[in-house]
Design a protein around this nucleic acid. Structure first.
Lengths: 214, 214
DNA sequence: TGTACATCAGTGAACGCGCGTTCACTGATGTAC
DNA sequence: TGTACATCAGTGAACGCGCGTTCACTGATGTAC
């Protein structure tokens, strides 16, 4: 009854063509479904229609594949944030706009966390990717990582006078904390069962709190 | 070279005596070291000096053991919070005291997260324990769970007039979000390398933000 | 107080599983002449 | 344009591992008579 597993994409050629990419994409799919622990070499190769050890031509070991998947996930987070930021109206005066863009960072982050819980968890599951040096894969269209997008939004807040400069240092951490914690409550905590509308409301409230509390 | 593993506590009697407790304690130790995934039946029985399947006399399966361990961990979180709350001065006027006690909830939570990262992660790793019905194990001396301690601190805030009643609904979620998120940044995020002093400072800042932002 | 017996906690052996990883290989592709 | 050869991506087979879980068992304990 395993006939209809994740279809073994028969190859006509002996070579695969782009196995590295195929493995990463399989890994992303696994992470989407089951989070970081589900990113497993053997299953990824199976989905790529290739023998298990073939992976070792492209990744040093399982961890290296997981790292690549994390980076892609971080890139998706970055783009989700960028999308939300792009939706901020241009008509606001600079301080109001800076504040709206900061809220958009949080909103995009939370939107992605809800839309892709498995990938979201994966994105932040490896220390190397969370605070290590940025790689191209984890950047958005703007060339900034999620964390850098937050930082620059806070910088804008200061630049437009919406935030006193002396409150700037460390501000990313309290902002990030609030938003990341809510993502946890929504995906793995008591807010799991909440309807979209209520989640939206509590998200707005949290973002206001950050804005005012900074 | 396995001679000095977790010592096999030789039994003189055929019966163990209190295997259930021994398994939970072994599970706690495993969680302390490696988080929820490290809570593994075979290793727990090994540490209890008993054959693997003996565990099935006391737990339906691995998950049941993990659940028991989570509950104990939650109980520890509750007590950490209670300790911090007990340290709040009695000399403050009621509203100030209520605010200080709310901060103490967050401070205790974060203190525990730092002191026992593995157990902290374990405590909140199972949906059943995070939002299911409370069991005696997950309560502190006061008979309240961590979440209930937070709720009651917020209720006090309202009772003493430190928080307008209309802002009370949902307040636990934004407060919890902020604190839980910081715990993540400290244990698994970019604040991992930070010294105690800086962590202390950022904790205080976050707690003030919550207090004011509510 | 002594004996027969039921109970049930822990034993011993085994199962099937999926995993990561290593080895020596094979055959398609690209390059040098 | 054709042939010899190096390269190297993917193959085939196998390894050892630790896990959860099931089975039929054994022997200590507690209870009824």
């Amino acid at each position: 009854m395993l006939t209809n597993g994740p279809e073994p994409p028969k190859r006509s050629t002996y070579r695969h063509g782009d196995l590295r990419r195929a493995l990463i994409e399989a890994g992303i799919e696994l992470a989407r479904i089951g989070g970081p622990d589900a990113v497993v070499l053997r299953e990824a190769t199976r989905r790529a229609g290739v023998v298990p050890n073939a992976a070792y031509r492209h990744f040093e070991d399982r961890h290296a594949l997981l790292e690549a998947v994390c980076e892609m996930a971080l890139g998706q987070v970055a783009r989700a944030i960028e999308n939300e930021m792009a939706a901020v109206s241009d008509d606001l005066d600079p301080p109001a706009r800076a504040r709206a863009r900061l809220r958009a960072v949080g909103a995009g982050y939370l939107r992605y966390a809800q839309a892709e819980p498995g990938l979201f968890k994966t994105a932040f599951s490896l220390h190397e990717t969370v605070d290590g040096p940025a790689t191209p894969e984890m950047l958005g269209e703007s060339g900034l990582s999620p964390f850098q997008l937050l930082s620059s939004a806070l910088d804008d807040l200061v630049a437009t006078g919406a935030l006193p400069a002396e409150r700037r240092p460390g501000a990313e951490f309290v902002a990030w904390s609030a938003v990341h914690g809510l993502a946890f409550l929504i995906n793995d905590g008591p807010l799991r069962a909440l309807d979209q509308h209520s989640i939206r409301a509590i998200t707005q409230r949290l973002l206001r709190m950050v804005e005012q509390g900074l």
